[in-house]
Design a protein around this nucleic acid. Structure first.
Lengths: 143, 143
DNA sequence: CCCATTACTTATCATTTGATAAGCAAATCA
DNA sequence: TGATTTGCTTATCAAATGATAAGTAATGGG
């Protein structure tokens, strides 16, 4: 296997993934939140409950900035902060009712576009795609 | 094929791709350029020569902002502007000598990390990965 | 030739984002 | 118990980014 060639293929693949992701997600976020705030909400949605430290780590942003953005989301009633019973320094962040609604709508919009993207793909090809996703997820994009 | 399940798999896949991409590319850009400027340079590197309008379109940024950033890159001697012989309104952007050096270094650093990422993968698995990349690129992430 | 369009530039402004210093309270550890 | 560490907050500043208005020069169509 030519690893150099594989690298180039990998680069153009990731570029394509970024482009398609952009196409699927553009304009789904409400105007009341910024891009970074939306990203945080996505993160919370997927892995709630989550601590500010975890958000900070996995979004690659400093604690002060994370704290600031969480505060803004809290003030918009999009998230809830629950303090840990055992360690009262810790907090657990969840989406509020409003936050859930907002993110459900966003994901629904994304899914509509995704389904449209694959609507004309044969059952056979879908199985191949499904398998390809598994392969790459498990062997390259393991986290 | 359960298309709903496929969507969820797709979402977590793209998340992983973004994370791995971040890990591979973090800190490769020189301090003298901003993130957006680096992205522009990547774009130019891959598809030079390129017009400002093309950059603007494919990076999803306005012409005025594109123009501003290109000017800064030009002032840093990282790109060249060549005006079109036939249509003198048009420009063709290329990396300058310095720009080429900068981007070659960046890509080399990324490649080192990529090769490290796959160094312990068997020949067999690499072939599978290679095929999976082709499948997804051609059937889902076509652009 | 005139007018509309295209390709790009300049200028300006608001907003977002990133970085840093300093602080506080709870927890841990010696 | 006192010192240190952890988890998070507040405040502040600089820089990057996004958006808009206005302008120039070249092109092209009628």
């Amino acid at each position: 296997m030519d690893k150099k060639a594989l690298f180039h293929k990998f680069v153009s693949f990731t570029t394509s993934v970024h482009e398609v992701t952009h196409a699927l997600t553009q304009d789904v976020k409400a105007d009341s939140v910024t891009s970074v705030q939306y990203k945080i909400l996505e993160n919370v949605k997927v892995s709630q409950p989550v601590t500010p430290t975890e958000i900070s780590d996995c979004m690659h942003m400093s604690m002060p900035n994370t704290s600031r953005e969480l505060k803004k989301l809290y003030e918009q009633n999009l998230i809830e902060k629950i303090s840990d019973k055992e360690d009262r320094r810790k907090q657990h962040i969840r989406l509020s009712k409003d936050g859930e609604i907002m993110m459900d709508e966003a994901f629904a919009a994304i899914e509509v576009r995704f389904q449209k993207l694959i609507e004309n793909i044969s059952e056979e090809d879908l199985k191949e795609i499904n398998h390809a996703l598994d392969v790459l997820q498990n062997k390259v994009f393991t986290r």
